[in-house]
């Protein structure tokens, strides 16, 4: 059985239908890329997954439990961490306080301390700036903070919404390297990206989202060489 199963998801904003019955699944240990043009419904998909937007129809099953109607604040405790689009770090709080909020639902102080060490090791920049207000970080650093914050919950799956958006090429490479490391350390990854080439190059499988529908899916490698994908998303 898949770790995460999304079945026939329909989502509306008022009368506008953003998702028109999408289905996909993510297996334990995979890196799954969800690619698509601006406005295709990628963010909506992730926000519905973590309870920020209600689904009108369809179901989301995570580790055998139906989480379709679970409120957003209960999702992270179940093992799903969401790195939102635009990073959404708490700009008034320090880097350290942001990371602590990532571990908000965890109780064991010692284990939190361990996770903090791991995150600082993975993102040395964050440790250097731990007492700095998050709003004063550069875009790339904020992205690292958003990822570090998500990892502080010790998730079994991490969903990321366009982590490379607006970053300089150096940071983009760094972010993708970190995603690989996160995946290798055993965390399942669901990655939403407009940078399809990069996303497909690290993913196992991928889904292509087109105006609220999944138009294509398959092995990432195959999609990378698919003619229609190349034309639409890889700019070739």
């Amino acid at each position: 059985m898949a770790m995460l199963e999304v079945k026939d998801l329909h989502v509306y904003y008022g009368v506008i239908q953003a998702l028109k019955g999408i289905s996909f699944e993510v297996n334990q240990g995979e890196v799954i890329a969800l690619i698509g043009a601006n406005g295709a419904g990628k963010t909506t998909t992730l926000q519905t997954l973590t309870g920020l937007i209600p689904a009108k129809q369809g179901s989301i099953i995570f580790e055998g439990k139906d989480i379709t109607r679970v409120p957003a604040h209960k999702i992270v405790e179940m093992g799903i961490a969401h790195v939102p689009e635009g990073r959404r770090v708490f700009s008034q709080l320090s880097v350290y306080e942001n990371l602590l909020l990532g571990a908000y639902t965890r109780k064991d102080k010692k284990e939190i301390e361990e996770s903090l060490k791991t995150v600082y090791k993975r993102f040395p920049r964050l440790e250097e700036r731990k007492n700095q207000r998050a709003g004063t970080l550069s875009g790339g650093e904020q992205q690292m903070l958003a990822m570090g914050r998500a990892l502080m919950s010790k998730p079994r799956i991490i969903v990321m919404d366009e982590p490379s958006m607006g970053l300089s090429p150096i940071f983009v490479n760094e972010i993708f390297d970190i995603i690989k490391v996160v995946s290798e350390s055993g965390t399942t990854v669901l990655l939403v990206e407009q940078n399809a080439k990069k996303a497909l190059s690290i993913a196992d499988r991928a889904y292509v989202l087109e105006t609220g529908r999944i138009s294509l899916s398959g092995k990432a490698e195959d999609l990378l060489h698919d003619e229609s994908v190349q034309k639409a998303y890889l700019g070739e």
């Binding site: 973590t50 920020l52 604040h73 999702i75 969401h82 708490f90």
Partner: peptide, 24 residues
């Protein structure tokens, strides 16, 4: 305090706070 930090988080970004597990 932890509830105090949750307040600051909710104050700044309600959705992001929920993603941390904060009950708004």
């Amino acid at each position: 305090t932890k509830p105090g930090r949750a307040m600051q988080a909710v104050s700044e970004d309600r959705d992001a706070a929920q993603l941390m597990g904060v009950n708004v």
